[in-house]
Nucleic acid binder design. Structure first.
Length: 566
RNA sequence: GCGGAAUUAGCUCAGCUGGAUAGAGCGUCGGUCUACGAAACCGAAGGUCGCAGGUUCGACUCCUGCAUUCCGCGCCA
């Protein structure tokens, strides 16, 4: 099987050929506009693949679905893919695939190795994924962790499907929140605590503020991914405190991300948009395009022209810009950088900005498509431990940090749990479940399957048994139901990756891996790999090697490690 | 009130963009190791897919109402 083709696409080609045949016979007036839909039936007695095209077309042709189905089967070209086919229910055509085709994937997998499952649909086009984008006012919390896990996995999926991916982290380094941060650090440096009468309104109360203040007074030097600052130690110099505090928290977040094994290509500063004049330029372009008006001393953008439910203020009566103006400038900058696609992974609480940003971009008349950029929004995360919700962290004070989770359950389990659920559903992170070492914990379940594969292969190597590739000559020995079921699952992987990337849903991969691990464990318990006839053993070793590769490739897409032993 | 998300087994969640008898894991009950790793496997029980209509060959899936939960809704970011 060549890279990129699947059983489904081979079957689709056969069915299309049959439809063309029916057109030439005059049974059909024309080909349907869409490609025939092919599904994997849930019930294996319904075959390996099924097609509903007869039911879809029947009405238009004026034939009974089952009659049309039967003519379609007659018209199928000769092939080695289909073992048999039948018509079932209201007019499904069920196809039973030649078992040899199922086990042939083992050959493809061993040949393609770490690239098995990958495709070139992105064709090297450029996509930017922006995620986390936390302001440097505190450690990353679990919500940021979910964003990091999803955003990074999305990036990996897009890379695996041929896109050229740019990972970006955007942060506000100059706004009101940063001012609060500086004031809070200053207050701490002056020996005040949150109970003090002069403690700043909206000041940050987390314990980390005190650490920053201590470091500032001590004149320490901090180094973050995108900056390095030495403290001035002067308690009255608010600008110096601000710069130092931002650097401290940037470093803190860098360390969190490093512990989470997430890496960015670029950190983009909101302040740079002011420095470069991009914000002013955005405003004047919108004004010139006639999308703005003045009212009550403020400048408004007519976002209602672009689907918003009310117009939005751009420049406040006191002269400053509202937050969405630099947001629009930022996204215009992304467009100018040539990203065909931009995907923003954010918490669902940012939902309301989508319409505004898109409206602002449309108003610029830069040829930006209406649905650009794309958004993946994730819902809230709550953390449970010992049956109760955890709401406080020692370090951050008011919320549970990402680092807390990593410390409790490790990077692998944290990443898996945060990425394994649909972003649209609220997530309950059960710390005790993530720590469990049994199949109630899917991370260990999948990793254990990988370690088992590695163990068998190791054992075969020690005994001087065959190299897994030798088994490729004996794939016909793979015949038992559990064995074929495993091979079929291995063959699904490319589809799973393609669909997950297309729908921007990394959790598809997590679910698939769980199912694959279950198929492997069933196979493993039913059939001894190393204790059969020589040819069967060789074939099974090839199957195990292929399974190990697919699990490793899948875990890689989630950013979870694939251990050789546990 | 407006907008978004959600509602599926006792619990945590899938459900391949409309297919056939709605699936996993945990939990419960019952079986499998002098072991290619039992961190596993096999089996059983467990469901009015929130409610009511609609669309059609066919609805957990799409549409319209209603209910409940979460999140947003400032000249805050």
């Amino acid at each position: 099987m060549p890279n990129g083709t699947t059983m489904k696409s081979e079957l689709a080609a056969l069915i299309t050929a049959a439809l063309e045949q029916l057109v030439s016979q005059g049974v059909l007036a024309e080909l349907p506009d869409a490609a025939p839909q092919i599904d994997r039936p849930k019930d294996s007695s319904h075959g390996d693949l099924s097609c509903n095209v007869a039911m879809v077309l029947a009405k238009r042709v004026g034939m009974a679905p089952r009659d049309l189905a039967s003519q379609l089967i007659e018209a199928l070209p000769k092939n080695t893919l289909i073992d048999s086919s039948d018509i079932a229910g209201p007019g499904f055509i069920n196809f039973f695939i030649n078992p040899g085709h199922h086990t042939e994937v083992v050959r493809s997998i061993l040949e393609q190795g770490s690239s098995y499952g990958h495709s070139e649909t992105g064709a090297g086009r450029r996509v930017q994924v922006e995620f986390v984008s936390a302001n440097p006012t505190g450690p990353l919390h679990v919500g940021h962790g979910r964003g990091a896990a999803i955003g990074d996995s999305l990036s990996r999926l897009l890379e695996a499907t041929g896109w050229s991916v740019h990972r970006e982290f955007y942060y506000n380094d100059a706004g009101q929140q940063i001012n609060n941060l500086a004031l809070s650090v200053q207050a701490r440096a002056q020996g005040k605590d949150p109970a003090h009468p002069d403690w700043p309104t909206d000041g940050y109360q987390g314990g980390y503020i005190e650490d920053v203040a201590t470091a500032y007074v001590a004149g320490e030097t901090v180094q973050a991914a995108d900056r390095e600052i030495t403290a001035a130690s002067d308690v009255d110099n608010l600008d110096a405190i601000r710069e130092f505090a931002v650097a401290c928290l940037r470093r803190e977040q860098d360390q969190d991300l490093k512990a989470f094994q997430v890496v960015f290509d670029e950190y983009f500063l909101e302040s740079s948009l002011y420095d470069s004049g991009a914000v002013e330029e955005t405003v004047s372009t919108l004004e010139q395009a006639g999308h703005t008006f003045e009212e009550q001393d403020a400048l408004w953008l007519r976002t209602t022209d672009f689907g918003d439910d009310k117009n939005r203020v751009m420049r406040k009566s006191e002269g400053g810009y509202t937050y969405f103006v630099p947001d629009v400038a930022y996204h215009h900058n992304k467009w100018q950088r040539g990203f065909e696609r931009v995907i923003n992974e954010q918490g669902a609480d940012h939902h309301s900005t989508i319409t505004r940003v898109r409206a602002g971009l449309q108003g610029l008349n830069s040829g930006i498509p209406e649905g650009w950029p794309e958004y993946v929004l994730h819902q809230m995360v709550t953390v449970m431990r010992e049956g109760a919700e955890v709401k406080l962290s020692k370090r951050a004070g008011s919320y549970v940090t990402l680092r807390d989770l990593i410390d409790w359950v490790g990077c692998d389990a944290t990443r898996y749990f945060l990425v394994a659920r649909a972003p649209t559903s609220q997530l309950t992170f059960d710390v005790d479940l993530a720590l469990a070492r049994s199949n109630e914990n899917p991370v260990y379940y999948i990793q254990y399957a990988h370690a088992r594969c590695a163990s068998v292969l190791r054992k075969a190597g020690e005994d001087n048994r065959a190299n897994p590739h030798q088994g490729l000559a004996y794939l016909h020995c793979l015949v038992e139901p559990e064995t074929l079921a495993l091979a079929i699952s291995l063959g699904r992987f490319p589809e799973v990756v393609a669909i997950a990337a297309e729908r921007l849903e990394p959790h598809d991969v997590a679910n698939y891996l769980r199912e694959l691990a279950a198929d492997f464990h069933s196979f493993y318990n039913a059939h001894k790999v190393l204790e059969g006839a020589a040819e069967t053993t060789k074939a099974r070793l090839a199957l195990v090697a292929a399974t190990r590769l697919v699990i490793a490739n899948g875990l890689e897409l989630l950013g979870v490690s694939a251990p050789e032993s546990m």
